[in-house]
């Protein structure tokens, strides 16, 4: 536990002092400030657009952060040989990996909270500009934000897994982006092949491949609650419950795989 905490705090300090992340955080902050301005371009849904833009910017920021942190935090330690100094101390590799993960996860959630405060201001401001017939539903917006956070924590674990497997930087980055796009699309494809026209258009082998991918890849679209937030639709509580369980199991499973692979890794 002691070592987990140490790696966790060291990683968090590393993230806090990373110049590149400072620049990115600044850029995304600008993005958030633009939200009320861009919202004005909508004809009839200034408030809905503000919510959409806010969640979009959050999503985009988290995407960048999760890929960067997930891919680089272990890769950089290996590449710059910091890991040799660290792992030659009596630290279990499992503690090192989990400490890294916890720091990244906490940082992503911290970003969600910070952006949430900014979002509260921008959405309130935009909502006052043009009265929508739909009320601003804060529980829905917070749900969408937390789900977004959960999703990108899962993506960061995917990146961690890749960075543990690969020695080059190309595979983790390309692999993570690929898994993200594929994992966001599988739900749509799955629904398509189960619909009448889809079953006809796609060959049987294709259908099996899509089904296999659907159950194998992380289902990122399950975490998308933007529509519920923007249009204040009633939240499907049972779906949310299943999604949270799915997240817990999938994340644990990936961390488990990563830790097995990391345990076997040699640092030459």
């Amino acid at each position: 536990m002691q070592h987990f905490k140490l790696i966790f705090s060291a990683t968090f300090v590393a993230i806090k002092r990373d110049r590149l992340l400072h620049a990115l955080a600044g850029a995304s902050l600008l993005l958030f400030l633009l939200v009320p301005v861009i919202s004005m371009f909508s004809m009839r849904q200034v408030q809905e657009l503000a919510i959409t833009l806010f969640l979009s910017s959050l999503s985009f920021t988290l995407l960048i952060f999760s890929i960067l942190l997930g891919v680089f935090s272990i890769w950089k330690d290996i590449e710059k040989r910091y890991i040799i100094s660290v792992l030659s101390m009596p630290i279990k590799r499992k503690d090192y990996l989990l400490g890294k993960f916890a720091a990244i996860a906490l940082f992503l959630m911290f970003t969600v909270c910070l952006m949430g405060i900014i979002g509260y201001g921008t959405i309130t401001f935009a909502a006052h500009q043009y009265q929508s017939e739909i009320p601003v539903s804060w529980p829905n917006i917070f749900t969408a934000m937390l789900m977004s956070g959960a999703k990108y924590i899962l993506l960061a674990v995917v990146a961690l897994l890749f960075s543990v497997i690969s020695t080059s930087i190309f595979l983790p980055i390309a692999g993570t982006i690929g898994i993200f796009l594929a994992g966001s699309a599988t739900q749509g494809l799955y629904e398509y092949i189960n619909s009448g026209s889809g079953a006809q258009d796609i060959s049987l082998t294709g259908q099996y491949i899509i089904k296999a991918l659907y159950y194998l890849l992380p289902n990122f679209s399950a975490f998308d609650y933007q529509v519920y937030a923007a249009y204040a639709l009633a939240l499907p509580l049972d779906t949310i419950f299943y999604t949270v369980c799915y997240w817990l199991i999938y994340t644990s499973f990936l961390l488990f795989c990563a830790s097995i692979i990391f345990e076997k890794k040699e640092f030459r």
Binding site: R17, R81, I84, S85, M89, P90
Partner: peptide, 16 residues
């Protein structure tokens, strides 16, 4: 490793 003081070859430490 608890009782080892180890100096790696060309060591590198968390530079932040």
């Amino acid at each position: 490793r608890r009782q080892i003081g180890y100096l790696p070859e060309n060591p590198a430490f968390y530079d932040f």
